[in-house]
Write a protein that binds this DNA or RNA. Structure first.
Length: 286
DNA sequence: AATTATGTTGCGGT
DNA sequence: AACCGCAACATAAT
């Protein structure tokens, strides 16, 4: 579920809600979610959260007076839910995708904060994790990511040159986090629709101008989604349990067998790069 | 009731 | 090295 816009939404909210707060104790409900670190509670207790950073879909929590960081990846179904003295902060949640009372069946870790609030990490499918990392490990993690399309320093021409060399579907190229960071299955399909490019087209087969269109579409779709709190397709909820509004703007993802908003041709769904893939056969050219 | 699908990524194989 | 397919896991839909 969570791709760059959803993780960024969570990051901005966590920044507001937990920055400056001190960890009172950590409750581990599932050891896999803390990378089987049995001492994580002892290590985190007393640390004050300095800031929340992000690279690609990875969250990086820093602490005052400590060189260590907490890395957190939501993978498919992870959620950070912030509860201030018994109430999920969003309030109006009509939460089908999230659990209404916390901790719940899917709560894997609870970070109890001084002052009585709690940050819950829920994760149905157990792919997500939180783990303590040394400065060196944080640097290694950062180095594994390619540039982000929303970065001020994103180099469209470098993207175009790199993609042009790869004899693999453009969809696979866009999903490669070490080449370009932040896109997942939803935003790749949406960006390729905007660019008018068929997901199955090989990088080597696309013209430089069409690859430029892809880069610009990727940047636009991510920034527009961030502006409305991300996309909820199935599981995403922000730290208050609220859904993301970009779901209303999806043009192809999940729209198979419905008419394209631009030309009326039915959107089709195929398998590409091992993933369910949606596109308009008329608007998107090979 | 069994099979298939699911938004991520890392692994092992070609 | 670049690329492909699958496994990790739980749940909902068919």
């Amino acid at each position: 579920m969570p791709e760059l816009p959803e993780v960024e939404t969570v990051r901005l909210q966590l920044r507001q809600k937990v920055r400056g707060k001190t960890i009172a104790c950590v409750e581990v409900f599932h050891p896999k979610t803390v990378a089987h670190d049995r001492a994580i509670g002892r290590k985190l207790k007393g640390l004050t959260i300095a800031d929340i950073d992000r690279v690609g879909k990875l969250l990086i929590v820093s602490f005052q007076d400590s060189a260590h960081h907490l890395l957190a990846h939501l993978k498919m179904t992870g959620q950070f839910l912030y509860v201030d003295k018994g109430k999920v902060s969003g309030g109006g949640h009509t939460l089908s995708p999230i659990d209404t009372t916390l901790p719940s069946k899917h709560t894997r870790v609870a970070f109890h904060l001084e002052g009585g609030s709690t940050l819950y990490f829920n994760d149905m499918r157990l792919f997500g994790y939180t783990k303590l990392a040394s400065p060196r490990e944080v640097e290694e993690a950062r180095a594994a990511f390619g540039p982000e399309p929303i970065s001020d320093t994103f180099d469209v021409e470098a993207f175009v040159r790199g993609a042009k060399k790869r004899r693999t579907p453009i969809k696979a190229i866009l999903l490669d986090q070490s080449f370009i960071a932040g896109l997942g299955n939803i935003y790749v399909d949406e960006a390729l629709f905007r660019a008018g490019v068929r997901p199955t087209s090989l990088g080597t087969s696309l013209s430089l101008p069409r690859l430029r269109l892809v880069a610009v579409a990727a940047r636009d779709v991510l920034s527009e989604s961030i502006a409305v709190g991300g996309t909820t397709f199935q599981h995403f909820a922000d730290t208050g349990g609220e859904k993301g509004n970009f779901s209303d703007y999806l043009r192809v993802f999940g729209k198979q067998n419905t008419p394209c908003a631009v030309c009326g041709t039915n959107i089709v769904k195929i398998r590409c790069a091992g993933r369910g893939t949606h596109y308009c056969p008329k608007c998107q050219k090979p």
